[in-house]
Write a protein that binds this DNA or RNA. Structure first.
Lengths: 222, 222, 222, 222
DNA sequence: TATGAATGAGTTTTCATTCAT
DNA sequence: AATGAATGAAAACTCATTCAT
């Protein structure tokens, strides 16, 4: 899926190197997520990966670089996943629903990394990468809305830019609350609620994807 | 922990102590915001406050405690400000608008502190305080919505809990984008957009406070 | 003798600070000389000075700076000593003798520091300082020779520049051999030999200071 | 340590091994000279020699040993060169001149190694080797002077030991100044000056080798 | 109360050397 | 013989916190 630079046939060595990097990244995300980035020293990462400290430095230039690589890898996976899930899905309602759900579910699988994003990602040296991620998220929702407008499903008056940001904000909020265990809702439930909000904004209520009235308290009837 | 409510007549000494603490907090927020929490050492705070390092420790037990106190003070001010602004404001639309605006404007004045909240506040040891803040924000919007329901302005079916969280998420998102200079919109413009979003969810469009259709692109007409 | 910057009345604190620096320098020269600069860590210096590692860093910015300061202080002392010893000494023979002797004796008292000069002083980052020291040494002997020429004691044909370098080289050589225990001669004996060498170059043999024929084997008679 | 004199017919393998060692030494001297001994890591040497790090360790036991071997090889070459140059040269004046010149020129060709000698050679673990080198230099000049005495060219009173050291010191001084670019004189010019000094000590002025009055400033006439 | 010198645990990073392939 | 991944000891430097004055 992502033979980045060496266009053909990675060497046996390159393969092994790639694997080691994966291992270290996994270990790093684990301990960073558990103890926090600042409180974790490279030795902790090494121990988790069952390697010597120095070995980690063979694969990454610094602690910061480990973080950056972890985020990069996750983002790549997220984008690939989103594209795959949307493949063949037709109709604004369905596409919105999938797009919202995929981001909820993905980060739910990556809570430790998500936690990093919320702390380390805020620091000056990682601003650029974090902003990139946010802009990509915005563009993602924006493009789905735009397609809806192109097909006439969305009226001309709606400010798609602002709405796309709002979607991202709500998704992020739900993710964070789940990470912090401030909610017991599942990613799917949250996704439905957010999708419902959006449809309401577009004056397209009636039926959310699962034909469940979003934004209604579970017990309530329409 | 220390005498929470000294009931009556603070001693002259208590007053002086309080002032010193304020000075140190102001200095701390300034330098923390400029260099980041981790990168700032207690000596920096002391220098900014024109005190000796040791003196800071007469007023705060640790660097962490300075952060916690700064947040506590800000939150108190925010709550006081919100209450003051809502005083005498009647009607769901108006109260919502004010409630959203006040949180936008307040943090806009406190960008340095807000930045801390987004980084330090995420660390394990400050989770509790940060959650408290978020829950209070949620309760704040929830109570305004509840009042609307009590007066019949809001239909029975709407899930107020979820909507309150959504408001908080959108407000936070706007604040963060402003802090990161990812947007050029003013707090007031953002507040209007969010308010419009909420009214639409409540099937109460027609007029946002400023009678501008929220979430509509500026040039569009209703 | 050297109130460097604060022209008047050093504070009590400045005095104490100065003393601490002296103590650390003394300790540093001791351990550097014993184990070598590279093999010595700052902790060793601190232990020798009976201080904590961190304390050393309150007085010096880095290990390198300790070295540089030690050399600077020694050079100042050497120059002061040389000036003092030459005070009132008249006549080329006598002045040369004193000038050569003082440099022999001084470094003999400072063997550990001298060893540093020969190793650390060679490294790129200290080249400038070391060159300065050598140039100063050359200028020192050069000026004494020049005075001799001005009084007519030295013939016009002699190349004073080259001779001054030669003096410095021989003095250095003797010092190094003494440091390395490759010789058992005393600084005074070496000084006499070198002085005799120079006088012979100037066609002013006859009497070295001590009226001993220089460069002649001890037992030999004129 | 290893078979010092393999008496007869070096194996094919021994020859290859010897070649590899030469290659590595050449690479080592190059990078050590460029970056300094401490700042150079074995990997740098290996890269320069186009070998893997581990391979270097097949030929040398340690980084230190590489240094020692490099010096040993250079010294052997120097001695061979000196012997070759002196072959067939007759007369004290000529032999002295050649002996001084050869040492100037040789190190001038080996500045990188010379630099190592002045730093690494000073460290405790290399003292012995460095002293050996200096003693050999002294013995070299001493033997030439002794030959002069044996032929009656040198008077009985002169202290040959001290003079030999003085020659070595002056030669070293000139070499170092050239290495540090503190002089613009050529090795030949320096050699003449030093030779002139020595002849003057021996009361054999008149003609240095090139019949140029040494120690006289260029423009002066005899 | 105010000070700031002293402390030393703790962190990142480098690199000589080893050893399985 | 050749390789280079793995090791882990070691070192410079920082800074929150203490405490004698």
């Amino acid at each position: 899926m992502s033979q980045a630079t060496p266009s053909r046939r990675p060497t046996r060595r390159e393969l092994l190197t790639g694997l080691r990097r994966q291992e270290i990244l996994a270990a790093a995300i684990h301990v960073f997520g558990k103890k926090g980035f600042a409180a974790t020293c490279v030795g902790d990462v090494a121990r988790e990966a069952k390697l010597a400290k120095g070995t980690v430095y063979l694969y990454f230039d610094s602690k910061e670089e480990i973080y950056a690589a972890a985020v990069r890898a996750a983002v790549d996976r997220l984008h690939a996943l989103a594209a795959a899930r949307l493949e063949g899905v037709e109709g604004l309602r369905q596409r919105l629903s999938v797009a919202i759900t995929v981001r909820m579910e993905f980060w739910y699988q990556q809570l430790n990394l998500y936690r990093l994003l919320l702390t380390v990602g805020r620091e000056a040296q990682h601003k650029r990468q974090t902003h990139e991620l946010m802009r990509a998220g915005h563009a993602f929702y924006r493009s789905i809305l735009q397609a809806g407008r192109d097909t006439g499903e969305i009226a001309a008056g709606v400010d798609l830019d602002t709405l796309a940001w709002a979607i991202l904000d709500m998704v992020r909020g739900c993710n964070e609350r789940r990470m912090d265990r401030l909610t017991r809702r599942t990613p799917q439930q949250d996704a439905e609620a957010v999708t419902g909000f959006v449809l309401q904004q577009l004056d397209l209520p009636g039926s959310a994807v699962a034909a469940q009235p979003a934004l209604q308290s579970p017990g309530a009837h329409a």
